[in-house]
């Protein structure tokens, strides 16, 4: 690594001030993406690194009136271990488990995973399928936007150089909404996704129909994309295996995968159909299991 100046932020406000003062600087959180990048691409050498890993106000997982709020510095291991998250959204814990390996999950943060914004970002699909919002801190204060708009292009987000992603919020109306995440990689450990997918939906118990359907796909477009054709098809339709399979087939049209060293575009399209179908089925099963549990009480 080339030499750089190093500043440690005590909280998010301090971090934003440091970013403004030393622009252009790179932000260091868990380091699993940044340090690997600085080592492999010496041309990326920044003049300044602002270390936010000690910013205490960017940690913590809590449910409040806004919904489920996850600090940007929460690590993937913390997401996996959080009983709040496992109760409300097991899909988020499942997605965290597919990232890297234990050592990188102990360092890597949710915010960092989203800010790096690779097309295969494993934290992305579940959060997009749950209509997550991001809170961004800047010199003028905070602003929020949907996560789906935060992703702009491969490795590019809506963040300005003096801004910081501080929090991810799943809105209150979606607390406990059934959701499921699946990822297909070339092996079980430390694999990049060939395709990852998440679906969320609600089932009308009386009519057995789907509503509020969201299907989000990763690694098949420049950013995480919603399979809106498939969502629209399923909205109000019966929750049947045939309809989930058809939604999977329709999701392929919403994906624009490329061929690369890991997989061909055609194989990725097949995976989209299968993963979309399976995540829909699993979210549906979760919804029915939750209702049975509720009925027993």
């Amino acid at each position: 690594m080339r030499a750089f100046e190093y500043f440690t932020a005590t909280d998010s406000k301090h971090a934003v001030a440091l970013l403004a003062e030393h622009a252009p600087a790179r932000v260091l959180a868990g380091g699993t993406d940044l340090l690997a990048d600085l080592k492999s691409s010496p041309s990326h050498a920044p003049k300044t690194v602002v270390d936010i890993s000690r910013a205490a106000d960017m940690r913590g997982i809590e449910v409040n009136a806004r919904g489920l709020c996850i600090g940007a510095l929460v690590t993937h291991s913390e997401i996996m271990a959080s009983t709040v998250i496992r109760d409300l959204f097991p899909a988020l814990a499942d997605a965290a488990h597919t990232i890297g390996a234990v050592q990188t999950r102990n360092l890597g943060t949710l915010g960092g995973n989203l800010v790096t914004a690779v097309p295969s970002v494993d934290s992305g699909p579940t959060l997009v399928a749950l209509d997550a919002q991001v809170t961004i801190a800047g010199p003028a204060g905070h602003r929020t936007m949907p996560l789906s708009e935060f992703f702009v292009a491969p490795r590019r987000t809506a963040l300005k150089p003096d801004e910081l992603l501080v929090e991810i919020v799943i809105p209150a109306e979606n607390l406990g909404k059934p959701a499921h995440f699946l990822k297909m990689g070339l092996r079980k450990g430390q694999a990049l996704a060939l395709v990852n997918a998440a679906s969320s939906l609600r089932i009308d118990a009386k009519k057995n129909t789907c509503k509020d359907v969201r299907i989000a796909l990763g690694a098949v477009a420049p950013t995480v994309v919603r399979a809106k054709t498939a969502e629209k098809f399923l909205e109000g339709r019966a929750a049947t295996a045939e309809n989930f399979a058809e939604a999977g087939r329709l999701a392929v049209a919403d994906a624009k995968p490329i061929s690369d060293m890991r997989a061909s575009a055609d194989y990725r399209k097949d995976l989209v159909a299968v993963l979309a179908k399976r995540t829909l089925e699993a979210a549906c099963a979760q919804s029915k299991a939750a209702k049975q549990k509720g009925a027993r009480k």
Binding site: G31, T32, L35, D51, S53, S77, Q103, T104, L107
Partner: peptide
């Protein structure tokens, strides 16, 4: 917690 010490700055 086990971590990759190559991905952590000494300052951290």
């Amino acid at each position: 917690l086990p971590v990759n010490s190559c991905l952590m700055l000494a300052g951290q």
